[in-house]
């Protein structure tokens, strides 16, 4: 009787061990099966049908699962189904789930290093949540960090027009004109911002940027004028006034008549007058 009991215990232990080992082997063999399973989820309205009226809750549960799944760094292939999870499933079930767009796009951009995928998700969110400016804000930064300043400007402009958007979006959009090299357009936009700003911070910043931009433009003009002078006379001008005398440049002056620029004879270049910095407004 005792022998039979011991045999049964041994059998039970053996079975538990077999099941455990088989399970562990299966986990090793196919660690991303949960995410892969999402590939079989139907798309669009057919996915909604699967939820039978509980779309938002299903989206929440998938979102919670996704947060846990993408917080783990064990599975190297975890990003294979990233777009399917956030673009194809969660935001399809709950199209107004703004946090899912933000978090999904952050994972796509920072973790999976696929900014194009992140932008596709932002675009979807911007289309489906017309009153959300945050998605445009982050999409702008996404483009900014990839060096696509025109696209960044487009997103920030789009966001600035949405209800509740902070003035930063408009300011960022204006700054992008400088980044793409369209300085005259940037100058116009700064003027317009300074004149129409509803908050003091934006007005002060716009004026500061305007001053810095004017300084930069003037320094470029001086550089060209000095080059022309050197070509004509074979040496460096003795002062900035010499450039003006030759008609190569018009010296900008303060309302009080004080000079806004000085000449650095040692290095043969123009510099902002003391107290005036081109870095000041950055």
């Amino acid at each position: 009787m005792k022998l039979r009991g011991a045999a049964l215990v041994l059998l039970a232990i053996g079975l538990i061990a077999t099941v455990g080992i088989a399970r562990a082997r299966l986990e090793q063999r196919d660690p991303d099966r949960l995410a892969a399973g999402l590939l079989y989820l139907p798309q669009g309205p057919y996915l909604r049908a699967l939820a039978v009226g509980q779309e938002e809750t299903l989206a929440d549960l998938l979102y919670i699962w996704a947060i846990q799944y993408y917080s783990s760094y064990d599975d190297l292939s975890r990003y294979d189904f990233l777009e399917q999870v956030f673009h194809g499933a969660i935001t399809e079930l709950d199209p107004r789930f703004d946090e899912a767009y933000l978090v999904g796009a952050l994972i796509m951009s920072i973790e999976a290093r696929d900014p194009a995928m992140a932008l596709r998700l932002y675009d979807k969110g911007l289309e489906l949540i017309p009153d959300n400016w945050e998605l445009a804000y982050w999409a702008g930064w996404e483009c900014y960090f990839t060096g696509d300043y025109r696209a960044a400007r487009r997103y920030w402009q789009q966001g600035a027009e949405r209800p509740g958007a902070p003035p930063e979006l408009g300011r960022h959009a204006a700054r992008m004109l400088e980044r793409v090299g369209d300085l005259s357009a940037a100058r116009e936009e700064y003027w317009s911002m300074a004149e129409t700003a509803e908050d003091e911070a934006t007005r002060v910043l716009a004026l500061a940027w305007l001053e810095r931009l004017d300084t930069e433009l003037a320094l470029r003009a001086f550089e060209q004028a000095i080059e022309s002078y050197r070509r004509q006379h074979g040496h460096c001008p003795e002062s900035l006034i010499a450039l003006e005398r030759e008609g190569l440049v018009e010296l900008p002056r303060h309302e009080s008549g004080a000079a806004l620029f000085r000449f650095d004879a040692d290095n043969c270049r123009a510099l902002p007058a003391p107290g005036r910095s081109i870095e000041g407004a950055r």
């Binding site: 009226g53 809750t57 929440d60 947060i67 946090e99």
Partner: peptide, 24 residues
């Protein structure tokens, strides 16, 4: 408790699950 597992939007989870519980 479930809402603690999420990033942001924890109140949305409470509302969604609460309403689904009432429904189901």
């Amino acid at each position: 408790v479930l809402s603690l597992l999420t990033v942001g939007e924890d109140v949305k989870i409470v509302k969604d699950i609460g309403l689904t519980a009432i429904n189901l």
